[in-house]
Amino acid sequence: MTALLESSPPVTPAVPRRRRNGRRTLDFIAVHSVALALGLMFTLPLVFVFLTAVMSDQQALSSELWPREWHFENFVAVFQKAPMFTYLTNSLVYSVLATAGMLLSSIPAAYALARFRWRGGNLAFMLVIAAMMLPPQVTAVPLYSMWASGHLTGTLWPLIVPYFVGDAFSIFLLRQFFLTIPEDYLDAARMDGCSEFQVLYRVLLPMTKPGIAAAALFTFLYTWNDYFGPLLYVGERQESWTLSVALASFRGMHRTTQWNLTMAATTLVLVPVVVLFLFAQKSFVRGLTFTGIKG
């Protein structure tokens, strides 16, 4: 299952051997043409975005699909119009610090929830689920007021700090991973005189590296893609904008631009995510399958 996105044995069609081979071929063609259509459907929007990104102003306002000339300088123009490097830095600061904070705070908590038996453990786990499911808009007013009273709105701190005190989704995910390690391994370490801390860092963590990578990736991706949080806390201050906020405001801010530059900016925002994915496919998939199943 770890290599789910690369290749894995297909579920062979449930056709008994005595049936004709022709039925199998038909089946093969049908399945693969549907898959091909799906593949196109999922990819074409992004292709159109790229093609429009390299069109001229005038052509971007026409209904032509293929660029007459390739204006790769549009990507440069985006950087000239907007301080994209600042936004990129902000996005990176938010995502990297949040991920680091999540790991520091959520690994111990997940371990405690997965491996300790205590009164209130059930309640704590339910609270994790409740926090995970809570729409962020519910708590926005008091949290905004809280950060505003500390004059910290307009900075990235309100976005980052919560990750240093435990992120519900990551705790949930990590707990699922920790549960897969047989208790015997941990007990063996305890018998050798390891403290709980050593059990966690010497035994459990090395064994669940893939799970930790998945949790880190999801946090990174979630914060990278986050729009509500940055809009709420740093919307007021352009120097603190993340890429998402900047992209959403791109057309409003650069009122003389056309669709081509907007699409060029869109391309620039989604390229890093795609690259990250190509490098870390396996971790993504592992994490995904663990959110849904496996106890």
Partner: peptide, 18 residues
């Protein structure tokens, strides 16, 4: 001199104290 600051952003910044 900062541009593209609409009324919403101005009011937000006042609420935030910056």
């Amino acid at each position: 001199n900062q541009g593209s600051q609409d009324d919403d952003k101005i009011t937000q910044a006042i609420r935030g104290g910056n």
